[in-house]
């Protein structure tokens, strides 16, 4: 093996150095540094407008950075764009499609753009099957439902077997069945050595799937660590109370995280706050119908870092 090839083998899947992006006056990315190693399952999280898609579009060569460098598998996305793009499969966030063709035709064309010929057709069919598109293979793209279009969009990113796969909100608008199917397929690809980068607003998804996550806010990375570390950094737990008809005593309002239909979730920083909460309820003569102590999840980490008070963030 030549030195150059050895370097490529050891090269990070993605290396982002001091990336800035301005859209006129808007400073959308403010110096992003991020290295993702080959074989990682990586989550890129952040509220709407944080800059996730902008960063992905720079990786994909759809946007030019105002400043900074990006490489994929050791190939610079500007100077060595052909090798970089051969290594990358991107599922765009927007539901775009070509209205002239059916699913299989479109996937074969897409593979062809990457220089793949008929020897690749078996893989295309495998992708079709794994994404539950077999019944729709001969359906025109225009006639697919939204969720089916999303599947086709995901399939399109995979036709050339890229070592690095970036999925920008792949599960927006898809049913539970596909989510499970999709994650099973993506996990298999990851196990086969593909690097996966995922953005999602479903934090439970990120928590179960991603070994490492970056949280972005207003064009900056505000946290970057393994999922386990991020969770352990937050010592707090949540206390979930079912109060039936009663409402929460005012003394507990500062701890309130969320509450609806008589079920309130309180954020605890220390365990002895359970005592405090219960005594406050007793004083108010409120009958607790049910009570649970819950570990903090990625959403709590996210809220504490990104500050979701303005309700930008959704969870399911």
């Amino acid at each position: 093996m030549t030195q150059m090839m050895a370097d490529k083998v050891l090269a990070p899947a993605i290396k982002i150095e001091r990336i800035h992006k301005r859209f006129g006056d808007l400073h959308a990315l403010k110096g992003i540094d991020l290295t993702i190693q080959q074989g990682e399952f990586f989550g890129l999280l952040g509220p709407n407008g944080a800059g996730k898609s902008t960063l992905i579009n720079i990786l994909a060569g759809l946007l030019k950075p105002t400043h900074g460098k990006v490489s994929i598998m050791g190939h610079d996305v500007m100077d060595d764009y052909q090798a970089a793009r051969l290594s990358l499969g991107v599922v765009p966030q927007e539901l775009v499609f070509d209205p002239f063709f059916n699913v299989r035709e479109m996937l074969r064309f897409q593979a062809g753009y990457f220089g793949r010929g008929r020897e690749n057709d078996a893989w295309v069919d495998e992708v079709i099957e794994n994404l539950g598109l077999t019944d729709k293979a001969h359906t025109n793209m225009r006639k697919l439902s939204g969720g089916m279009k999303r599947r086709a969009l995901i399939a399109q990113a995979l036709v050339h077997k890229p070592p690095v796969i970036v999925l920008d909100e792949p599960t927006a608008g898809v049913d539970v069945e596909l989510r499970q199917m999709l994650w099973a397929f993506i996990k298999k690809l990851n196990a086969d050595g593909h690097t996966i980068i995922l953005t999602t607003h479903y934090l439970e998804e990120a928590e179960t799937l991603c070994e490492r996550v970056a949280m972005m806010k207003q064009g900056e990375i505000v946290a970057l660590d393994t999922t386990a570390n991020l969770l352990s950094k937050l010592p707090g737990k949540n206390l979930r109370l079912n109060l039936g008809e009663a409402s929460l005593p005012p003394a507990l309002l500062p701890m309130l995280k969320s509450g609806e239909n008589g079920v309130y979730t309180l954020a605890l920083t220390e365990l002895n706050q359970v005592e405090f909460a219960l005594s406050a309820l007793r004083e108010a003569k409120i009958n607790v119908e049910d009570m649970q102590l819950i570990e903090a999840d990625l959403e709590d980490v996210f809220m504490s870092l990104v500050g979701g008070k303005n309700g930008q963030y959704e969870s399911n």
């Binding site: 793009r85 765009p92 775009v96 209205p99 753009y113 990457f114």
Partner: peptide, 17 residues
């Protein structure tokens, strides 16, 4: 049309020069 539909990205994502 492919710019308006957005499907031009499928070509822009490829190594085609």
């Amino acid at each position: 049309q492919s710019k308006i539909m957005g499907s031009i990205v499928f070509v822009l994502l490829t190594p085609l020069s």
